[in-house]
């Protein structure tokens, strides 16, 4: 399997560390919503098909990547920096305000 790191280019899967389900949302640190915490820590979508997941390029630039990969075929349809999520979310927020 090859993952195309947006920074380093296509690299073998051996350079990456899997960090699992990228759909999980961590509750606000002070949140006392235990259901949300439990869901975040333990519950997984585990789809048979496209999976939104996080990989760290641990043997490369060490960035965390959001990868959409098909769990039936291992085909990767998109790779992006996870940090980009936040940047675009912030942008959206700014646009909403404007």
């Amino acid at each position: 399997m090859l993952i195309t790191c947006p920074y380093c280019g296509p690299r073998d899967v051996i350079e990456f560390t899997y960090q699992g389900d990228g759909n999980r949302e961590r509750p606000d640190p002070a949140s006392q919503n235990f259901e949300a915490w439990n869901a975040y820590v333990y519950d997984r979508l585990n789809p048979a098909g496209d999976h939104n997941e996080i990989w760290q390029h641990s043997g490369g630039c060490r960035a965390h990547l959001r990868v959409v990969r098909n769990t039936l075929t291992h085909e990767i349809s998109s790779v992006a920096f996870v940090r980009g999520d936040h940047a675009s979310a912030a942008r959206r927020k700014a646009e909403d305000k404007a």
């Binding site: 389900d21 869901a39 519950d43 997984r44 585990n46 789809p47 048979a48």
Partner: peptide, 19 residues
């Protein structure tokens, strides 16, 4: 091995399992 798939048919969307 297919738990996620079959449970989803029953409307159980998440499980403490990864395949």
């Amino acid at each position: 091995g297919s738990t996620g798939r079959v449970m989803r048919l029953a409307g159980v969307e998440t499980m403490p399992i990864e395949s």
